[in-house]
């Protein structure tokens, strides 16, 4: 239902143009969860915001059921706004502090439903669906816990009956017990309404739990996509491998961070990206051509694509992970 093609997002700053998203191709099917993972500054939130048309698209297409919305403006966008809704990370800043719960959840309905009584019924049913007690309907955001606020944000997103939710770090600000509740709620809602999710997160554990397919982003580009089982259990791109090797695991006999090689360096500045493959300065398997040629995302097996020169000649295998990444 969502198809992104050749998407670029640029920001202008004092230091020049930041190309936050570069040539991204992605698709999300009805009822499917696409997990978008990457570290801060990799462009995943810019991509999410571009899909919502909250930030300008420099180049490329965003198709909803075949219609390109990348350059629609104002009223022409309205029918698609209804189909796409977003839940943000920080529920304290994404809910208006001067509105009570009823008003917050009702707000999107005001454009479509003129009848106040009908809106009130819809709000009551939405609150019930997301597990908010009816007694909370007059409460303001500051009177609620983080978990309750995030439920309200989900209810607001569901109000107009969307087909796709863009979830940008929806549980990152929550404690683990609340995280579990909100994730379970999202799974239930998806099954009930056949919702598609674009689930953006830096937390591999959460993505591992939620996603059907996974896309890994590094410095504005998708470096690997595939099913959750392929990408997260047998990562092909050296960056995906490095990312997964850094994820802490509960297994105190076998996984102690002090005894494990960890990728060195940090994400380069998007103002001054490295030539060639953006990961080459940190890559333990770097070769000469990685320094000047940008690797393209190529199909590598069923439903799977990887952007790595070494993968073209299949020199990278999951063996690399088992043997441990050699710090550069």
């Amino acid at each position: 239902m969502l198809e992104i093609q050749g998407l670029d997002v640029d920001y202008r700053s004092h230091g020049g143009t930041v190309r936050a998203v570069r040539g991204v191709d992605l698709a999300v099917g009805r009822g499917e969860t696409l997990g978008l993972v990457g570290e801060s500054g990799c462009g995943k939130s810019s991509l999410a915001r571009a899909v919502m048309r909250l930030t300008d698209v420099a180049r490329g297409a965003i198709r909803i059921d075949g219609i390109d919305i990348a350059r629609l403006k104002g009223r022409a966008l309205l029918p698609y706004r209804r189909k796409l809704q977003m839940v943000f990370q920080d529920s304290a800043s994404s809910l208006d502090p001067r509105f009570d719960m009823t008003r917050i959840i009702e707000e999107p309905l005001r454009t479509t439903q003129a009848n106040g009584a009908a809106r009130a019924r819809r709000v009551a049913s939405l609150m019930d669906q997301v597990g908010l007690a009816a007694s909370l309907k007059d409460r303001y955001p500051h009177e609620l816990s983080g978990g309750q606020r995030q439920r309200a944000a989900i209810a607001r997103a569901l109000a107009c009956g969307p087909e796709l939710l863009v979830l940008d770090e929806p549980v990152s600000a929550l404690d683990v017990s609340l995280q579990a509740q909100v994730l379970n709620l999202l799974v239930d809602l998806q099954q009930e309404y056949k919702l598609a999710y674009l689930f953006v997160s830096h937390d591999i554990g959460v993505v591992q739990h939620m996603a059907d397919r996974v896309a890994v982003m590094y410095l504005g580009r998708i470096v690997e996509t595939g099913t959750h089982a392929d990408v997260l259990a047998a990562p092909a791109h050296p960056y995906t491998q490095a990312l997964l090797a850094a994820v802490p695991v509960i297994s105190p006999r076998t996984h102690r961070i002090a005894n494990r090689p960890v990728v060195t360096g940090e994400l380069p500045s998007p103002l001054n990206p490295p030539t060639g493959c953006a990961f080459h300065p940190r890559c333990p398997l770097v070769q000469a051509r990685c320094r000047h040629a940008v690797p393209q995302l190529r199909v590598a097996g069923e439903g799977r694509a990887v952007a790595c020169h070494l993968h073209e000649t299949s020199q990278v295998s999951s063996l690399c992970l088992q043997e441990g990444l050699v710090p550069a």
């Binding site: 683990v176 579990a180 799974v187 591992q208």
Partner: peptide, 20 residues
């Protein structure tokens, strides 16, 4: 606390429910 952490879902079949 240990069980409430998100779990990798199996390759096929339904997602395991997280204990709340």
């Amino acid at each position: 606390l240990i069980a409430a952490r998100p779990q990798p879902r199996p390759r096929f079949g339904p997602r395991p429910r997280l204990p709340e």
